[in-house]
Amino acid sequence: MTSMNMVQALNSALDVMLERDANVLVFGEDVGFFGGVFRVTEGLQQRHGEQRVFDAPIAEGGQIAVAIGMGAYGLRPVVECQFADYIYPAFDQLVSAAARLRYRSAGEFNAPLTVRSPYGGGIFGGQTHSQSPEGLFTHVCGLKTIIPSNPYDAKGLLISAIEDDDPVLFFEPKRLYTGPFGGHHDRPLETWAKHPAGEVPAGYYTVPLGQASITRSGGDLTILAYGTMVHVALTAAAETGVDAEVIDLRTLWPLDTDAIIASVGKTGRCLIIHEATRTGGYGAELSALVQERCFYHLEAPIERVAGWDTPYPCEFEWDYFPGPLRVGDAIRRLMAA
């Protein structure tokens, strides 16, 4: 085991897969010589050569289209979309092509590509470097969507994504790259060095898709979270003193419905939290699921805490970000019901 932050863990996953499988290629804006603006591909071109790790033109639609063609040939391309906010030019290629290729060709062709993309807020990136667009993709059948919350999961999930024969969107909460973040922006930065999930095997391992992780066990309330919000949930649970169970979904699709049903069946209360805007967000799907499957166990209405339904405002980041204040408030309201 080695201590790694999330950037190093992701780098290690790419390194391991480039080493193991000659069909794996890595490309995107600035990922080659420079090693990526967040350093996730640092050193990979030097180690694996420019045929396998290279810079791509700034055209996300082109990058993902090219990856689909490579996938049809038999490669396993990994594309870095520099910010999730930049993925929209590729929407048609993801929705109409990548997600449908297996279906429309009745299995003759598939698109085993992985799209990595730094995601979410907390870095004063304003509305073009902070978005959480996962709900646009979880709505599309044929895609898989992953959002890790720590270095260990990030590496194991990324390896699973690359080995997966379906197209995978892999959103990396960039606020978690260098350390866990419980939502108090005014407190000293933490690092992964002392966190158990910062202990990462140097070699190959996988974390399977479709398995949630119970990050904190509890009996009174279930909090469903992913990405940065897992750490916010832990902070809020500690600050309210409520015996909350925090479930880190890890993969939004495929979704571990059994883990959710079991937990809410036990606690009878459910809080769903995400950074993405609230209306029509992934939390709405989770809420519907809990209502349909756990209705007779519920002792309080299901609550959602999410980003406000506004663009992500630069200066007002900490009024926008659904931090421990809002999550704690919802916990107290749920427990009072």
Binding site: L25, R52, A65, I68, A72, Y73, P77
Partner: peptide, 17 residues
């Protein structure tokens, strides 16, 4: 039009291999 850049990717893969 979606197939046009996909063909380029297929060709790149063929060249890579």
């Amino acid at each position: 039009g979606t197939q046009f850049p996909q063909a380029v990717g297929w060709a790149m893969a063929s060249a890579y291999k």
